[in-house]
Computed example of a mutant assay.
Amino acid sequence: MGLPVNVGVIGCGVIFAQYAQTIERLPELRLAAVADLDHERAREAAGRYPGTEALTVEELLAHPGVDVVLNLTIPAAHAEIALRAIAAGKDVYGEKPLAATTAEAAEVLRAASAAGVRVGCAPDTVLGTGTQTARKAIDDGLIGRPVAATATMITPGHERWHPNPDFYYVPGGGPLMDMGPYYITSLITLFGPVTTVIGAAGRTRAKRTIASGPRSGEEIPVTVDTHITGVLTHASGVMSTLVMSFDGEATTSPRIEVHGEQGSLVVPDPNHFDGPVQLARPGADPWETLPATAGHPDAGRGVGLADFATTPPGDEPRASGALAYHVLDVMESLLHAAATSTAVTVASTCRRPEPVTGLPGAATTAAT
């Protein structure tokens, strides 16, 4: 595939602008076309980016000038759009999760394999300097053998700011399916795949009230658990404790904290690309801030798409479909473990993604 890679976007909702801005500034990508069920919204989106066509979904999938389909639809439509793109012979990269269920995601991966096309998936925030600097610190032995981690996300729920938050509270939504991919992808980047999970889950109320936009004051039903906690055991032996909640106001806990035999790390919010990585070791001042030593500096949503689109044939991109499938499998397994009060073996596995190394001008961490 020649450069720049021509990207066709399906779904021009809230997240579209962030991807479009990244595509515009990366020379390896070009925003060729956009489509949305609301064609007027597609026209408005295309108008902000010269040279971008506003098409119907059918026209975009059939367009010979589109190399990769960027699927930014709602989670319930991820599998349908991915399968249609694959049937059209296009590589497809989607927003997280890969699909609403592992059954749908498996169908997507099987179809892509049969068609000889590739599937990639967000999140790509783990490719920034935050998670990658923490990974390098771990790989360089700065905390010795990693033993455990905690990952915490607590918010009051997206209905406070999102004008149409319904999909956050139906199957495929909830704090785990919505935000879990960021945290679990980061944990897998740091420690490798997950083998078993245990967990518990619940919900505080049956309805939520929209607080902004034209539907402000409208109540929507809640049909998924809104507080989930679990323990993930990685193949490497690390045990990660995960808390995902729409039932609290805020938290002062670090988003991810890693503990090893010779030290501890604070890892920045995996919903962001950067942030300080802090290290505590015996005999040193607590929580030394490490310089950024790995990852894409000044990254934005879409850097994973660029990695996907430019990865040579036969190599696995960092934001791969296989990784996204494993993350989804871990989340489904955790929900099953919570519902049945049992330990659940995660059926799938994946490769630990390759690190993003060679940050220009950065210092090199080394074990001491």
Rank of each mutant, 00 (worst) to 15 (best):
M1H: 10
M1Y: 10
M1W: 08
G2C: 12
V5A: 11
N6G: 15
A17C: 11
L26A: 07
L26F: 05
L29G: 08
R30S: 08
V34H: 05
D38Q: 04
R41V: 01
A45Q: 05
G47L: 10
R48P: 00
G51R: 07
T52R: 12
A54L: 03
L55V: 03
L55H: 00
A62S: 15
H63N: 14
G65Q: 15
L72S: 09
T73S: 15
P75L: 06
A82V: 12
L83V: 14
R84E: 14
A88W: 06
P97R: 04
T101S: 14
T102K: 06
A105W: 01
L109S: 03
A115W: 07
A115I: 12
G116E: 13
G120S: 15
T125P: 04
V126H: 08
Q132D: 04
A134W: 00
R135P: 02
K136S: 03
A137G: 10
I143R: 06
P146H: 12
T152D: 06
G157T: 12
H158M: 15
E159W: 06
W161R: 09
P163E: 14
P165K: 08
Y183A: 09
L187Q: 01
P193V: 00
T195W: 03
G199L: 04
A200V: 09
S212H: 11
P214Y: 10
S216F: 00
G217C: 08
I228C: 05
T229I: 11
M239N: 15
V243K: 06
I256N: 06
E257N: 03
Q262P: 09
D274K: 03
A284K: 10
D298H: 15
R301A: 11
G302P: 02
L305H: 01
L305P: 00
A309N: 10
P312C: 13
P313F: 07
Y325W: 15
A338E: 07
T345W: 05
R352W: 04
P355W: 00
P355V: 08
A363S: 11
